[in-house]
Design a protein around this nucleic acid. Sequence first.
DNA 1: TATTGTTATACTCTATAACTATA
DNA 2: TATAGTTATAGAGTATAACAATA
Lengths: 152, 152
Amino acid sequence: MSHDAGSESPAELDIVDALAQLSFAVQNALGRRAATLDLSMTQVRLLGILRDRTPGIVDLARLLELDKSSVTGLVDRAAKRGLVRRESSPDDRRVSRVALTESGRELVEAVAAEFATDVHKLLDGLSSSDVEDLRRIASRIALEELSAGMAS
Amino acid sequence: MSHDAGSESPAELDIVDALAQLSFAVQNALGRRAATLDLSMTQVRLLGILRDRTPGIVDLARLLELDKSSVTGLVDRAAKRGLVRRESSPDDRRVSRVALTESGRELVEAVAAEFATDVHKLLDGLSSSDVEDLRRIASRIALEELSAGMAS
DNA sequence: TATTGTTATACTCTATAACTATA
DNA sequence: TATAGTTATAGAGTATAACAATA
């Protein structure tokens, strides 16, 4: 968790605090960008997933790590705003696939672009070799995490 | 935002996706640990702040970036569970300072310890020089972010 | 029988607006 | 007047349990 860096400012953080603080900075950037467009983090995650997929409710529940009943409400609210729509599946009439609308796609691309700008700003003071090291190491952790998640 | 790494697994991520995924991995670790102890991320952040301070409601609202009325409810629920208590301030009778109880302190230390374990697990496949590079770079970003925040 | 999705219900989290008490 | 805090209210997000439709 980390210890919200107290009153005094230490010159260095240990690895746990450093990663915790970095992750808060990144998530806060995304959260604030989302908020300016009246989106919650969950809505952004939903739209992000739909950028390259049209999953059913149960698939979404697994991807978002939510109960399927929570996803029903989430999709309801996004649909009411015209960001997504439900489509019937040709092969299984129980399934309702969720897809981005044009307006939803525009919104998610806008958030993604603004977020990318914020991340680059966060890296402003670093040398290009530090940025490349960070990219390589973070990328490796993320990809190992991904394959670990696949196993479950 | 990042693009929840789609169906195919790329060998490398760009810096934005890498940081986004890393930050999700870290936040999910914290969120899951918190959830096993029936704590929300906000409750964990509240308890984390109280580890070394006894702020008033308005201070907490600023630190958590929430409205003060939201903090009232947050503190109410934590107090009902015996995790925090309100104390009157000697110098300003309007202020009610929020402090951890013993039980709250035990809980937050437990979450912190479990989270630290998770972070180390995340780093398992890395060389020690990669871990040190990551610590140094993340630490620098976090500390610059902190001083930027102070300015506001 | 198992799976997909929705509904009913209840609780947490959050903000806005209006209020009380103190400074 | 200004600040600290609470209350009333409303809406989003979440889970559990029970249900209907389809497989």
